[in-house]
């Protein structure tokens, strides 16, 4: 039976005032046509989880090579030039839009004549493009600060429940009800970098809120599985096209069904989540199903028996 965390348990913020028992263990929804791919993902996750814990004896992991190296991104070599090219490409789209809107406005506005509806629409779109430019720059700076190229972890034995609570706290109260199911009683211990994992869950919860209807439910569950601890964040939003379930974790990739909806996304958040989770020896993946709703799963390995690293 799932334990549903509630405000009564302690320092839960007002946001969780109405926890909902979501019944039996959440299933990992997989449409039949994607069974093979999902199986492959799980097998990879299992293989990752069965590897010797990589963090013993060190509290730092380099992404750049060696036995602890994380697989390179599927989007090709991550040279500085390539990253710059991708960034330039991302910036040119809103610049094109902005430049064009202003060109249209200059061609239609006349001194002494009040602006019409079309002009206001153009100005609104131009303003959205400026916001997008600003958000792209913010995302890039944030990603850079978070160490896209060299992710250093400071790992310790931590309670994943506490990390999840901390990730939920900054979310705006009243925007979305959030329920948290905690399968295992007591602390959910993992060996991890607390701040990095908090960043992962903040990102996943932020995406869930961003791509869901106002006031819709966001579900976060933690449960022990054979390979470790499985955390899942589910929403009732636009979902993820099955063919893009892997690609959304690529750098600068944005799902095709969110284009035009969100001027703020640039496609770095999930990429960064993947880097962080994989640096922990874990796996992150999305349910392969068409909406409504998306669920992102994070599998974190736990040391077996008494093999907890000295922290």
């Amino acid at each position: 039976m799932m334990e549903v965390c509630s405000k009564r348990e302690g320092d839960w913020p007002e946001l969780y005032a109405n926890p909902v028992d979501l019944g039996p263990e959440p299933a990992v929804a997989v449409p039949s046509e994607d069974q093979g791919r999902q199986q492959s993902t799980r097998e990879t996750a299992r293989a990752d989880a069965q590897r010797p814990l990589r963090l013993v004896g060190t509290n730092e992991i380099s992404l750049e090579g060696g036995p602890c190296a994380v697989k390179p991104s599927v989007d090709g070599p991550e040279s500085a030039g390539n990253a710059l090219g991708v960034l330039a490409h991302e910036l040119r789209n809103p610049l094109t839009g902005l430049s064009g809107m202003l060109e249209l406005l200059l061609g239609s506005l006349q001194v002494g004549r009040p602006a019409g509806r079309e002009e206001f629409e153009l100005l609104e779109t131009a303003q959205a493009e400026v916001r997008r430019l600003s958000d792209i720059l913010s995302s890039v700076v944030e990603a850079e600060r978070s160490g896209l190229r060299s992710l250093q972890l400071k790992c310790a034995a931590v309670d994943l429940r506490e990390i999840v609570k901390a990730a939920v706290r900054p979310m705006l109260p009243g925007t979305h009800p959030i329920t948290i199911e905690c399968g295992p009683p007591g602390p959910v211990r993992v060996y991890a970098d607390r701040h990095r994992l908090e960043q992962v869950f903040r990102n996943l919860l932020g995406n869930a809120a961003k791509y869901s209807p106002p006031a819709s439910l966001i579900r976060l569950s933690l449960r022990r599985v054979e390979e470790g601890v499985l955390a899942s964040v589910g929403d009732e939003g636009v979902g993820i096209p099955p063919a893009e379930a892997e690609r959304i974790f690529e750098r600068f990739y944005r799902a095709s069904n969110v284009h035009g909806q969100d001027p703020g996304g640039v496609g770095l958040g999930l990429y960064l989540c993947r880097r962080i989770v994989e640096a922990h020896g874990g796996r992150i993946w999305a349910d392969h199903r068409v909406g409504p709703g998306a669920t992102i799963h994070v599998l974190l390995p736990t040391p077996s028996g008494d093999a907890w690293p000295d922290c």
Binding site: N93, P94, T96, G97, G100, M101, L104, E118, T125, A128, E129, S256, H259, G260
Partner: peptide, 16 residues
């Protein structure tokens, strides 16, 4: 174009 802003911009401009 996957940029709705650019698509709409071009559509508006060429329609004009």
């Amino acid at each position: 174009d996957d940029s709705a802003a650019i698509s709409q911009l071009l559509q508006r401009y060429f329609t004009r």
